[in-house]
Measured scan of single mutants.
Amino acid sequence: AQVHVDGVTYDFDNPEEAEKFAREMAKRKGGTVEVKNDQWHVE
């Protein structure tokens, strides 16, 4: 699973880890999390 944050792509073998990371980053940035094509996007 991939997580996109500020133009940087992070690869995770485990989708749950990807989701956890995406939500944590969004919380830190005060942003939102979107899922597109099985990829997490932190805005």
Rank of each mutant, 00 (worst) to 15 (best):
2 Q>K: 13
9 T>L: 08
23 R>S: 05
19 E>N: 02
22 A>C: 13
36 K>F: 13
7 G>E: 02
14 N>P: 00
23 R>C: 14
17 E>N: 04
42 V>R: 05
19 E>R: 06
38 D>S: 12
41 H>T: 13
8 V>P: 00
6 D>G: 10
38 D>G: 15
18 A>F: 01
29 K>G: 08
6 D>K: 04
43 E>W: 14
29 K>L: 15
38 D>T: 08
32 T>W: 15
5 V>R: 02
41 H>L: 09
16 E>P: 01
6 D>P: 01
31 G>W: 13
12 F>V: 00
36 K>N: 09
14 N>L: 06
26 A>N: 03
2 Q>A: 08
8 V>G: 02
35 V>E: 06
15 P>R: 12
20 K>H: 08
17 E>R: 02
27 K>D: 09
34 E>V: 15
36 K>Q: 11
13 D>A: 11
15 P>S: 11
34 E>H: 14
33 V>K: 03
5 V>H: 06
24 E>V: 05
13 D>P: 12
42 V>G: 03
29 K>T: 15
13 D>F: 06
5 V>L: 09
23 R>V: 07
31 G>P: 03
13 D>G: 07
7 G>K: 02
38 D>K: 11
39 Q>M: 13
28 R>Y: 11
20 K>E: 10
15 P>I: 11
6 D>R: 05
30 G>V: 03
10 Y>N: 00
29 K>D: 05
40 W>Y: 12
14 N>Y: 06
43 E>F: 15
35 V>L: 14
12 F>M: 03
32 T>E: 06
5 V>T: 03
21 F>E: 00
18 A>D: 01
17 E>Q: 09
3 V>Y: 01
1 A>H: 14
35 V>F: 15
17 E>V: 04
34 E>L: 14
41 H>Q: 07
20 K>M: 10
31 G>Q: 07
20 K>T: 08
7 G>M: 02
40 W>S: 03
39 Q>S: 11
37 N>H: 10
39 Q>W: 05
30 G>F: 07
29 K>H: 14
11 D>N: 14
38 D>N: 15
29 K>P: 04
36 K>M: 10
23 R>T: 06
8 V>C: 15
18 A>W: 02
13 D>M: 09
11 D>K: 14
11 D>P: 07
2 Q>T: 12
18 A>Y: 02
18 A>G: 02
25 M>A: 05
27 K>I: 12
17 E>F: 03
7 G>Q: 03
26 A>M: 05
13 D>E: 12
20 K>N: 10
9 T>F: 06
3 V>P: 00
31 G>N: 04
20 K>G: 05
12 F>R: 00
37 N>V: 07
41 H>C: 15
31 G>M: 12
38 D>W: 09
8 V>H: 10
1 A>S: 13
42 V>T: 04
31 G>S: 09
1 A>W: 15
8 V>N: 07
23 R>L: 09
24 E>F: 08
4 H>Y: 13
25 M>Q: 07
28 R>G: 05
24 E>A: 11
43 E>P: 07
25 M>K: 01
17 E>G: 02
33 V>L: 11
22 A>Y: 03
14 N>W: 05
36 K>S: 09
28 R>H: 09
11 D>A: 13
33 V>A: 11
41 H>I: 14
9 T>A: 06
4 H>L: 13
16 E>V: 11
31 G>C: 15
42 V>W: 04
5 V>K: 01
31 G>V: 11
43 E>S: 14
15 P>L: 10
16 E>T: 09
16 E>Y: 12
27 K>P: 00
22 A>D: 00
